[in-house]
Lab assay of single mutants.
Amino acid sequence: MTEYKLVVVGAGGVGKSALTIQLIQNHFVDEYDPTIEDSYRKQVVIDGETCLLDILDTAGQEEYSAMRDQYMRTGEGFLCVFAINNTKSFEDIHHYREQIKRVKDSEDVPMVLVGNKCDLPSRTVDTKQAQDLARSYGIPFIETSAKTRQGVDDAFYTLVREIRKHKEKMSKDGKKKKKKSKTKCVIM
């Protein structure tokens, strides 16, 4: 069974824990209790493949930012979460993405942009803004509501699919490099 290491990042209060708990335990946590770091595991079937999701729910508070490099190193894919009623959390996505790329030393890291709290009427981040940002990053965008469960499975499952595509691409690139290195030079 394939294991996928997913990391949920975003500013404090955007609903990272609520999304994760909704996926794992099928219930909505409405009281806000700032996370330092929590880890969850769940076995699911995605596109006919049974897999184990190892999900790291991270601290959004700035005082825990020193811990970010460590979990970013171990993560295979990242859910970059903002709240649709919090423009600052949307603007912060850029910083999370840049930090992930720096730590992973790669421009090509599996990510999904997630606009959470889409059940709320007080939207300050337009869907088109988020779609445009995701398009500019070359990553999928999904709106979710941890409260109603809308888009929750889709967000995590899409990230797994992005990781699969990335692994497939990397193995193809690896095979191309191996083929090239088999060419021999004969000096007579």
Rank of each mutant, 00 (worst) to 15 (best):
E3N: 14
E3W: 07
Y4D: 13
Y4F: 14
Y4S: 13
Y4A: 11
K5I: 02
K5S: 08
L6A: 06
V7P: 03
V7C: 15
V9A: 08
V9Q: 04
V9S: 06
V9E: 00
G10H: 00
G10N: 00
A11T: 09
A11F: 14
A11S: 10
A11L: 13
G12Y: 09
G13M: 12
V14F: 10
V14K: 07
G15T: 00
G15L: 00
G15Q: 00
G15K: 03
K16Y: 03
K16H: 01
K16M: 05
K16G: 06
S17V: 00
S17L: 00
S17P: 00
S17M: 02
A18Y: 01
A18T: 10
A18R: 01
L19C: 13
L19Y: 07
L19G: 13
I21K: 01
I21Q: 06
Q22S: 13
I24K: 14
N26H: 12
N26D: 13
H27C: 15
H27L: 15
H27N: 15
H27D: 15
F28T: 04
F28N: 00
F28R: 03
V29S: 06
V29Y: 15
D30P: 09
D30W: 07
D30S: 08
E31P: 04
E31L: 06
Y32H: 13
Y32C: 05
Y32S: 04
P34A: 07
P34H: 02
P34T: 04
T35M: 04
T35K: 01
T35V: 01
I36G: 02
I36N: 00
I36Y: 04
E37V: 15
E37T: 09
D38G: 04
D38H: 03
S39M: 07
S39N: 12
S39K: 09
S39W: 05
Y40M: 01
R41W: 05
R41Q: 13
K42Q: 10
Q43P: 13
Q43N: 12
V44H: 11
V44C: 14
V45I: 11
V45T: 13
I46V: 13
D47S: 10
D47E: 10
G48L: 06
G48A: 09
E49Q: 12
E49F: 08
E49S: 11
E49P: 09
C51Y: 14
L52Q: 14
L53R: 03
L53K: 04
L53T: 10
D54G: 11
D54Q: 14
I55C: 10
I55M: 14
I55L: 14
L56Q: 07
L56Y: 07
L56G: 07
L56A: 08
D57T: 01
D57P: 02
T58Q: 02
A59R: 01
G60K: 02
Q61T: 13
Q61S: 15
Q61E: 14
E62G: 07
E62L: 06
E62F: 06
E62K: 07
Y64H: 05
Y64E: 04
Y64M: 05
